[in-house]
Simulated assay, not measured.
Amino acid sequence: MVDSVLDNDAFLTQLTRLFENVKPTTKKILLTMKRHTWQPKKLRNAEAAKELKNQDSEKKVDNKEYPLVIRATCGKNKIKTVVNPSDSDKFYTAYSNILKVHMDSMKKKEKKKSERKKKIRKAKATIA
């Protein structure tokens, strides 16, 4: 798979397959979410520069609803989908269920020994 845009249901099934096929010790799955503005990066940067110049005037409130781009990568496998604001509730419930099911296979971050010693010292100080 090479960076294909999928519909929401196909993305969720592919994400489930990624979680099932990954070994916790060898590979990582990276999930990203971004607001999708439908504008090229150069145009967005030009608009941002104009806004900085005009920042002295009143601040604009952006009430637009933007779709989200959600990406999942695991090695060379890359999948993405665009979630419209109208479909977001349905998508988030299914997405969170998938994450909850596969959350137990994640490895906990190991704490450094020095942090443990500091916590023990603080606990002893508060007890005494």
Rank of each mutant, 00 (worst) to 15 (best):
I98S: 02
V83R: 07
K42F: 12
I98V: 13
K112R: 15
L15Y: 00
L43E: 14
K111A: 09
K119F: 12
E47R: 15
L18K: 04
K107Y: 01
F19A: 00
I29F: 07
A49I: 09
K42R: 15
K60H: 01
I127V: 12
V5A: 09
R44M: 12
V2T: 13
T13P: 00
K100M: 10
V83Q: 05
A123I: 13
K111N: 08
I70V: 12
H36T: 03
M103N: 08
V83T: 05
M106G: 02
V101W: 04
I79K: 02
K23A: 11
A123G: 06
N21R: 12
I29R: 04
K124R: 15
R35G: 06
T93Q: 12
T37S: 03
V82Y: 00
I98K: 00
S86Y: 06
L15D: 00
R121P: 00
G75M: 02
R71Q: 01
V61W: 00
L18S: 04
I127T: 09
K109W: 06
K50A: 13
K64S: 05
T13Q: 14
N84I: 04
T126E: 09
N45L: 14
L99G: 02
D87H: 05
A49D: 11
E47G: 09
T16E: 12
Q14D: 11
A94Y: 01
T93L: 11
A125H: 13
S86M: 07
A123M: 14
V22N: 05
P24K: 10
Q55D: 10
S96L: 10
E115M: 07
K59S: 09
E20F: 03
P67W: 04
Y92W: 09
E47N: 15
A72T: 05
T25F: 00
V69G: 01
E20K: 15
K42W: 12
L99P: 01
N63Q: 05
S96P: 01
V22Q: 00
H102K: 06
H36W: 08
S105L: 03
T13S: 14
W38V: 03
Y92P: 02
K107N: 02
K27A: 13
K111H: 08
Q14C: 12
Y66T: 06
Q55G: 11
N21V: 07
Y92R: 04
I120W: 15
M1Q: 07
N8I: 08
D62Q: 04
K100F: 00
H36P: 03
T32D: 11
K80P: 01
S88D: 09
E115W: 10
